[in-house]
Write a protein that binds this DNA or RNA. Structure first.
Length: 577
DNA sequence: GCCGTTTTCGGCCCGACTGTTTTCAGTCG
């Protein structure tokens, strides 16, 4: 929480400095903001443990910013920021969200028209006051109004899981065209980020005009923003924008690398190019010939781009500038788990609790999707709103699963439950029953707002239960809805390792809990993980892919994921004793 | 303001697009 707050202030300081035309500092603040945002550890804790020196170890944070962080921890304020804000007291966060509006324009709008927020901005635009300003015109005014409308309508980013199918469909359709040599989705979708802002697709085409015609007339297209011969831009009925770009075959690799991002990863790769006397852009890799002549030396494939930079191929899911470049240079990039290596889905619900399908229906769909084994893990115990099973029902369900295992071949069904971790950390199902199951997931479903200390103790105690194998959705976050419970994650990892308990990567689109950053921490701590979809409907079983993507983004190897194991070994490893 | 297997000083990623201008500034990804 502290990290996000300070990050926001740093972003704003950067924007204020940009208004003043201060060179280089804006980028420094912006970078520091991004680093803080994706930092896994709270700066408050870093400061408490290691002081100012600890803060300065954070990349992008030096003397001056460390002191500002210290100031914020101690006083809740940063003087420099308050000064800048006094000079230009506008709602920067709100205004810079408007597409096309940056610090320089915001400053002029404030000085000339006293515009402080979106409300003021909308009023001024409707009165046509903006187009009278120097270097502004009717088009700028129009764009501002459109930007305001968009920001009102759009919810911002979209969950990957709810758009991935459509993206894949569009990609496949394009690839099926005779005119298309290759079509590939780039951007945050290709990196499998948990939320995405828009869709970028690249194609190599023999006849680009025909491809563009096809693209803008797809049934999913709601509006066409622009249609050209090399780039078209549309809004899909899902509510998000999609761009299609035609690139030359010889540039496909560098274009794919460029448009896949992340921005931070690209900045790093271009810096490496520069250090080697090369230049990297979306058209290729270039070598300096003389003063101002560059010679193209590659760019047809991504592999070639990375190779010319002296790097191994870096999987898209790793391209977040979280150490993949450094690891690549040292030859220490991990071999991350492959999509086809995960054999099982370890978390799902049926009509026995709050699911929509019978066990048999779920099993058949899971088999169709190629799973080798699955665990049925209906709610049990006190969670009556979610149809928690009584102990009697659990025993009946065990019988049904045993019968189905005899009936259905080619997939094995494991007997499990999702039990509740009560406030005191105990499990609300009797050990006599737990004993008879293949695996037990224990999750927090109540009283989310406990103190950090209490919640950590609560989950640690659950892990001490000899029959609890997996902690479900360990941090309890719901993307775009609520932050996770307050936890000492380091402590959780220690206890998980000590008690041989596994942490879940919940693959449900709005959970993806553990997050990529927490997965990386768990992997580093040697804690093993399981992936489960938490499906409540058979159509949700396909979300396993999202959990694997998340594992890959967290640098997890095959050996870190328990459900990569064949069934027999899995059953041995899951047991605590 | 940050950073350093060439540096504690002198660099800092790159190009396209847009709208406003007659050569460029601002914004974006």
């Amino acid at each position: 929480m502290l990290n996000q707050k300070i990050a926001k202030i740093f972003y704003q300081i950067g924007e204020y400095l940009e208004m003043e035309d201060v060179p280089f500092k804006p980028q420094a603040y912006e970078k520091a903001g991004r680093v803080l945002e994706s930092l896994s550890k709270d700066v408050g804790e870093i400061y408490k443990e290691k002081g100012l020196q600890g803060l300065k170890k954070i990349p992008g944070i030096g003397e001056s910013m460390a002191k500002k962080i210290e100031e914020f921890i101690k006083t809740g304020k940063i003087k420099r920021y308050e000064e800048l804000k006094k000079k230009c007291p506008v709602n920067l966060e709100e205004l810079s969200r408007i597409e096309g509006l940056g610090p320089k324009m915001i400053k002029i709008l404030y000085q000339e028209l006293g515009i402080k927020n979106i409300k003021d901005l909308e009023k001024a635009a409707k009165k046509h006051l903006i187009q009278k300003l120097y270097r502004f015109g009717p088009k700028v005014e129009e764009n501002i109004l459109r930007g305001i409308e968009f920001s009102k309508k759009s919810k911002g980013r979209f969950l990957l899981g709810f758009v991935l199918d459509t993206v894949k469909l569009i990609e496949k359709r394009l690839n099926d065209l005779d005119e298309v040599e290759i079509a590939m989705v780039a951007g945050s979708v290709r990196r499998r980020k948990e939320t995405i802002g828009d869709i970028d697709i690249l194609v190599v085409a023999k006849n680009s005009q025909k491809v563009m015609d096809f693209f803008v007339s797809m049934p999913e297209v709601e509006a066409v923003y622009s249609k050209g011969s090399t780039r078209s831009s549309v809004r899909l009925n899902l509510g998000l924008d999609a761009d299609l770009r035609v690139v030359k075959k010889e540039s496909f690799g560098s274009a794919l690398q460029y448009f896949t991002g992340s921005k931070e990863h690209n900045i790093s790769t271009r810096r490496i190019a520069q250090e080697k006397g090369l230049k990297l852009n979306e058209y290729g890799v270039y070598k300096r010939k003389n003063q101002n002549k560059w010679e193209r030396i590659g760019g047809a494939s991504e592999e070639e781009v990375y190779q010319l930079l002296g790097l191994p191929y870096i999987e898209p899911e790793l391209r977040e500038n979280r150490g993949e470049i450094e690891a690549g240079l040292k030859g220490r990039l991990p071999k991350i788990v492959k999509y086809e290596e995960v054999k099982a889905d370890l978390h799902m619900h049926t009509t026995w609790s709050d699911g929509s399908h019978t066990i048999e229906e779920m099993v058949k769909e899971a088999k169709r999707l190629g799973r080798e084994y699955i665990a049925i893990t209906d709610h049990a115990g006190e969670l009556k709103v979610a149809g928690g099973m009584s102990e009697k029902e659990i025993l009946l369900q065990i019988k049904e699963i045993e019968a189905l295992n005899k009936k259905i071949k080619g997939i094995k069904i494991l007997k499990g439950i999702e039990a509740n971790i009560k406030v005191d950390g105990t499990i609300d199902v009797d050990e006599k029953i737990l004993k008879r199951l293949d695996l037990v997931i224990a999750s927090v479903h109540s009283k989310f707002k406990m103190s950090k200390k209490e919640m950590t103790k609560r989950i640690c105690r659950a892990m001490q239960n000899p029959y609890v194998n997996i902690i479900g959705h360990p941090t309890g976050r719901v993307i775009q809805q609520r932050a996770g419970y307050d936890l000492d994650f380091e402590e959780i990892l220690k206890e998980a390792k000590r008690t041989n308990t596994f942490l879940e990567i919940n693959a449900y689109p709005d959970r993806l809990d553990l997050s990529d950053i927490n997965i990386k921490k768990a992997v580093e701590a040697g804690v093993k993980l399981t992936i489960g979809t938490d499906s409540h409907h058979k159509n949700q079983l396909r979300f396993l892919e999202l959990g694997i993507a998340q594992a890959r983004r967290g640098w997890a190897k095959k050996s870190d994921i328990l459900n990569c194991l064949p069934l027999k070994e899995f059953l041995k490893k899951i047991k605590k004793f």
